[in-house]
């Protein structure tokens, strides 16, 4: 699903150049649930941004679902993001003046899906995250866990190839974190490919594979025995 070869990325800060990613080789198969771990500064967010086409690599190749991702202009990148990727952010990033349903429907709006179909799909995915009865509520009326579940529904709504979650539980307490992880595991069980960036050990252990990043290189890449989040809930 994802093939990355010899990925390099540097940031220029004034006269200094900061080499963040120093040659990453890394493949993800369809249906995997991968945790990317590392301390801050290890390059995990940069890697996720490049995977999410929010940032571009200096060197190396990136292939997503057999489509080479290179030389993207903003428009093409936006279209690929919309088609291939679903984003889940640490701070949820819901649009505060739109209801839960409208937030979920937003990626579909940019796909040009008709209004009626958008609403049906949005309700369907809100139902999957267990928030169907909250459809008309504004984000400010939802709890943190509920917001993240709306965000997950939004990421799912465009039926992407890969879900990218950047510290999805970073802003949540542990009970709520496990609920969110349970949902992510459920979505993964249905065959979706998910990448989770986290620095929390227990969250990483709920994935099927952990990639440890340190100082811009992959230190360790291991398949693990998945811990079911439902055991904690």
């Amino acid at each position: 699903m994802i093939e990355i070869k010899d990925l390099h990325k540097s940031y220029i800060m004034g006269s200094n150049s900061l080499h963040v990613l120093k040659g990453i080789d890394f493949n993800v198969e369809e249906g995997e649930l991968v945790a990317i771990m590392g301390s801050s500064g290890s390059g995990k967010s940069t890697l996720l941004n490049i995977l999410g086409m929010l940032d571009v690599a200096d060197e190396g190749s990136y292939t997503l679902d057999s489509v080479p991702i290179k030389n993207l202009n903003e428009k093409k990148a936006a279209q690929y993001r919309n088609k291939f990727l679903g984003f889940i952010f640490q701070s949820f990033n819901l649009i505060n003046y739109k209801t839960a349903m409208e937030n979920v429907a937003l990626p579909l709006y940019y796909q040009g899906v008709s209004r009626k179909e958008r609403q049906e799909k949005a309700l369907k995915y809100l139902g999957q995250v267990g928030l169907a009865e909250w459809a008309t509520h504004l984000p400010s009326e939802l709890s943190g866990g509920q917001k993240q579940r709306v965000a997950i529904a939004r990421a799912m709504a465009s039926e992407p190839k890969v879900l990218l979650a950047d510290e999805p539980t970073g802003a949540l307490d542990s009970t709520t974190s496990y609920e969110v992880m349970e949902l992510i595991q459920k979505i993964n069980d249905e065959g979706n490919t998910i990448l989770v960036v986290t620095h929390e050990e227990d969250i990483a252990k709920m994935c099927k594979r952990i990639v440890h990043l340190k100082d811009g290189i992959i230190e360790k890449d291991e398949k693990i025995e998945q811990v079911r989040a439902s055991e904690y809930v």
Partner: peptide
């Protein structure tokens, strides 16, 4: 800024 960033992450093209 953030809202517009989210919209673009979700697939809004610059011209949109």
């Amino acid at each position: 800024t953030k809202e517009l960033g989210v919209r673009r992450a979700l697939g809004a093209t610059p011209s949109e």
